[in-house]
Write a protein that binds this DNA or RNA. Structure first.
Length: 567
RNA sequence: GUCCCCGUAGCUCAGUGGACAGAGCAACCGCCUUCUAAGCGGUAGGUCGAAGGUUCGAACCCUUCCGGGGACGCCA
């Protein structure tokens, strides 16, 4: 995805600029006094949305933060800065997004946005809807995001669902936030587990008993039934290892199924990387060489070790076992090397909480290999406890006791499932009660948001029938009480995206989408949009609800959720 | 034993330094001759796990404790 060339400044960033100008002016004219030691220099201007709408559209706590370095009462500082802000509003209203300024104890500077700046945002949304909500990154990066990465020993389970959704939504948010993102799926299709899968499928096909340590899910029978004759024949050829031959085929078949499941989720990967290729292409060797060059490799007990203790780890880690086989860790560091060789500036791993122990050692190895440790980041997703009939279901592909991702989506639906995971922080543990989810799926907040979108679509259809087209912007009517409230919510999207991209979290998007839907439903109640008797007002309001519709659709798109035209 | 995450309304969860702590669901009361009632308005519900500390200001930062989950392999 190509980052947008010319990003919109948000109303928030324009406001920060205005405050910077006011601060500079107040400093220059001496009304602030001067910090004796320059300690005020490092203070950044923060602008937030007051919880109480009576306090204005935006507020800054700048005066409180300056109180100590300037050795002055915060209220006085606030008044000095507010005076400069007001001066600019009076002198050149077009240069500032602010309409009025107020100071409140203990030192808040409260700001009201100008109608004209809000109407400018509406006009911009209607003129270029596709890019609305895409912002420039403070520092644009090429980011590699690796997620799901379940080995092809069986279908994806609901245990994989959270990682898939969280990873996909994070990618969408990072792209909207001005970064370039590659989605990767890492898998091992040649290990011992694949051999066990192959032995299981081979046994089922040939009528032999399934090995004790084989796989016992129902899907293995389907694989056995589908096993092509030629593959079976080559597995039975003299000297062949049936587990390996059938396993290779089964892994491919399972992977095809996994890709189909992910496509159903709306999750797509740019690259599927096999662990085996890291060895055959020499990346593990290169990684070991980089470590050796730094003096962080040693031999002991016939094995090759990474001196992880040099980076604060409690013990050193084996790279190559005494039998010559590489460990999983060897593949990990090979992959780090391979990823960086492709020019990524940041690697993000979406891992289950059970990978906690490997985080530090992979990052340490990255540092030891000469990469920036801070550019290797792991997002650990907390476990989801799936409850069926009041009892937790543990997911085990080996035992065959699991619920597949496809089953979950048949029950709950993609949009509802996406919303469920997007609206919760990835580190918080979740209880997912299947029965409750089914029962509540029609009451899921996602439908509340989608309904607002569908309602607007309906209004636009009615308007078209009446021969009414949206105006290019709201115009004077934006000052109306109903319009003002909705326009303010609509205008927030880029700020919400900025925050979500910086925090690498999706909850802000779902919260915003809900608030915007609420604002629209209230508008719908208070303001009749399509009214042939009032064509000018209708066109003006059509412009506003059109902008709201675009904003809802773009916010939902960030979550991978559909925006229906009717419900 | 060491380390990580979590503990906020009956339930599921937002909120991580600011102005009276929020949403959805569940409960209760109202609103469809009106652009989609999957909606709107209202009522009720909280010692933000506990105790100290830092701060002008703490659900948020620090310490300790309690409770829940997870991690500590020459497994993958």
């Amino acid at each position: 995805m190509i980052p947008q060339a010319v990003p919109d400044p948000t109303l928030r960033s324009a406001t920060i600029k205005a405050i910077e100008r006011a601060l500079a002016a107040a400093t220059a004219n001496g009304s602030l006094g001067a910090p004796a030691d320059g300690s005020a220099a490092g203070i950044t201007i923060e602008v937030s949305r007051p919880a109480n709408a009576d306090h204005g559209d935006l507020a800054t706590n700048l005066a409180m933060k300056l109180a100590r370095p300037l050795r002055r009462a915060p209220l006085e500082i606030a008044q000095s800065i507010a005076a400069e802000l007001s001066r600019e509003v009076a002198a050149d209203p077009a240069a500032t997004p602010i309409a009025s300024v107020a100071v409140a104890p203990p030192g808040f500077i409260n700001l009201h946005l100008a109608d004209a700046s809000l109407d400018g945002v509406i006009a911009r949304i209607l003129a270029e809807p596709a890019s609305w909500g895409r912002v420039a990154a403070p520092k644009s990066r090429r980011i590699n995001v690796e997620f799901v990465s379940a080995n092809p020993t069986g279908p994806l389970t609901i245990g994989n669902a959270r990682g898939a959704f969280v990873g996909d939504v994070l990618c969408r948010i990072l792209e909207a936030g001005g970064h370039t993102v590659a989605r990767e799926y890492y898998f091992n299709d040649s290990g011992a587990q694949i051999g066990k899968l192959g032995a299981t499928v081979f046994a089922l096909r040939t009528g032999a008993p399934v090995p004790e340590d084989g796989y016992h899910g129902e899907y293995t029978q389907a694989l056995a039934d589908e096993l092509p004759e030629p593959v079976l024949a080559s597995a039975q050829a003299p000297g062949a290892d049936p587990a390996e031959v059938v396993g290779a085929w089964a892994a491919g078949a399972v992977r095809t199924g996994i890709e189909a499941s992910l496509a159903h989720l709306g999750v797509h990967f740019d690259l599927w990387k096999s662990e085996g290729s890291l060895h055959t292409e020499g990346w593990v060797e290169r990684a070991v060489e980089r470590l050796r060059a730094g003096g962080y490799v040693f031999e002991q007990d016939g094995a090759t070790w990474f001196r992880s203790t040099a980076f604060g780890d409690d013990k050193d880690r084996v790279i190559l076992r005494s039998n010559g086989e590489p460990t999983y860790f060897a593949s990990d560091i090979g992959y780090v090397t391979e990823k960086f060789s492709r020019g990524f500036e940041e690697l993000i791993y979406i891992w289950g909480a059970d990978h906690h122990g490997t985080v530090a050692r992979v990052r340490n190895a990255a540092e030891a290999m000469g990469y920036d440790k801070e550019a290797v980041r792991m997002l650990l997703i907390a476990w989801v406890r799936f409850i069926v009939d009041g009892v937790e279901v543990s997911m085990s592909k080996r035992a065959g006791t699991f619920i597949t991702l496809d089953q979950l989506l048949d029950e709950v639906g993609v949009d509802a499932a996406r919303w469920f995971f997007a609206s919760r922080g990835p580190t918080s543990g979740i209880d997912f009660d299947i029965e409750l989810a089914k029962k509540q799926s029609s009451e899921n907040p996602v439908y509340y948001v989608q309904y607002a979108h569908a309602r607007i679509a309906s209004i636009l259809r009615r308007a078209a029938e009446a021969g009414l087209e949206p105006a290019a912007s709201v115009g004077e009517a934006i000052g109306g009480s109903a319009e003002a409230l909705l326009a303010r919510q609509v205008a927030r999207l880029p700020e919400v995206v900025e925050d979500a991209a910086a925090l690498e979290e999706s909850q802000g998007i779902t919260a915003f989408a809900t608030e915007l839907a609420t604002a629209f439903h209230a508008f719908y109640r208070d303001a009749k949009v399509v009214d042939p008797a009032e064509p000018e007002r209708s066109r003006s309001r059509l412009a506003l609800v059109s902008a709201a519709k675009i904003t809802l659709a773009n916010a939902l798109a960030l979550l991978g959720i559909s925006a229906p035209e009717s419900m």
